[in-house]
Simulated assay, not measured.
Amino acid sequence: MNRRTLLKALALPALAATGAIGWVKAARATNRYHQGPVTDHFDGVRFFSPGQPQDKGFAELLRWQLGETKKDWPESFPSPFQDKPPAEVAGLRTALIGHASFLIQVAGLNILIDPVFSERASPVSFSGPKRVNPPGIRFENLPPIHAVLITHNHYDHLDIETLGRLWREHKPRFVAPLGNDAVINAGHPEILVETRDWGGSVEIGHGIHVHLEPAYHWSARGINDRRMALWCAYVLTTPQGTIYHIGDTGFGDGKIFHAVRERFGAIRLAHLPIGAYEPRWFMEPQHMNPEDAVKVFNIVAPQQALGHHWGTFRLTNEGVDEPPQELAAALQTAQVSPELFRPLRPGETWEASPHFG
């Protein structure tokens, strides 16, 4: 068995969930998702984060999969919470559906970010990372959905089956970074997707503007499309304050977080990822650990932070409940009250007063 076949046999399902199967080099001729001018983060074929590390090579991928110890995960890790959200919220309410999927209800609008309701975060239904807990909101209990925001195209964030169902039942507006419209339309050509570059924005009604901001991450759906679609974080400016949602990012040099604070000022609520970070030598450029997330908290200084991206799909090497434990330790070291930065379980909610400010 050659090394490529061995890697596929051992690791392909898990790697596919985060897009890490995109290590195969593709021809530079064309980008099948996006055609546009060269910019400071697009070379005409691939997107990149200026000044930050990019792709890991095949040898590093093999080293991770064959040479690192993975903590065992339980087959079931049920959450004690199950949310049944109201149809409308005048103020600000957010609920974790699971992993990186959120329902944000603000100023009368209902917004989903990276909704994944499928059993697996995988390109196939019979293999790949499987849920250890059900969605914290049943699909049937969703309120009317007005907008769906996609941060990037990895399988644990962009679930084609879920997006098709949302379109059929709710007809929401879809917003995504450049190139992700092609990914979505390949499965559902009927879905209308509004795409923007970093720094772009979309007004979705009720005084809410959605801003696409940089993240230190990457993208891939298959073996030859690495970084051909853009990725992003979102800032939502709303009548109830500013919300900062990061799907996936490394900490890197920290400049993107300082830029958000400088551009948008006071942050009411931040969704910060705290999981999928081991082994550190491989994951550091693309996924924050809890210590990194606390550094971001101190930079953007939100009134409230909520931790996500842990405890639903096994993607990396840490244990299922290590992220909240390490977050608690990092908060203690930084002398930050744990009430200000809470790790959420699926179905858990946080609600602010409708009279912000």
Rank of each mutant, 00 (worst) to 15 (best):
residue 268 R to F: 02
residue 116 V to F: 08
residue 25 K to A: 15
residue 148 V to T: 10
residue 336 V to Y: 08
residue 134 P to K: 12
residue 169 E to S: 14
residue 273 P to D: 05
residue 232 C to Y: 02
residue 195 T to E: 15
residue 329 A to F: 14
residue 52 Q to A: 14
residue 31 N to T: 09
residue 62 L to P: 00
residue 79 S to E: 09
residue 8 K to L: 13
residue 280 R to Q: 08
residue 95 A to R: 06
residue 30 T to R: 15
residue 50 P to F: 11
residue 229 A to N: 05
residue 45 V to D: 13
residue 92 L to Y: 00
residue 197 D to L: 09
residue 343 P to E: 12
residue 117 F to K: 01
residue 282 F to Y: 15
residue 261 R to C: 03
residue 35 Q to L: 13
residue 217 H to W: 13
residue 151 T to L: 07
residue 36 G to M: 12
residue 246 I to V: 15
residue 145 I to G: 10
residue 260 V to D: 02
residue 90 A to R: 05
residue 70 K to W: 14
residue 58 F to Y: 12
residue 352 A to G: 10
residue 99 H to Q: 13
residue 258 H to I: 03
residue 146 H to A: 11
residue 24 V to D: 09
residue 195 T to K: 03
residue 197 D to T: 10
residue 91 G to R: 02
residue 179 G to C: 10
residue 131 R to I: 01
residue 11 A to E: 12
residue 39 T to P: 05
residue 206 H to M: 11
residue 110 N to Y: 03
residue 45 V to S: 04
residue 247 G to R: 00
residue 62 L to K: 04
residue 306 L to E: 04
residue 327 L to R: 05
residue 299 I to A: 10
residue 357 G to F: 08
residue 328 A to S: 14
residue 145 I to C: 11
residue 221 R to C: 08
residue 323 P to N: 11
residue 120 R to D: 06
residue 47 F to V: 03
residue 255 K to M: 07
residue 74 P to H: 02
residue 8 K to H: 12
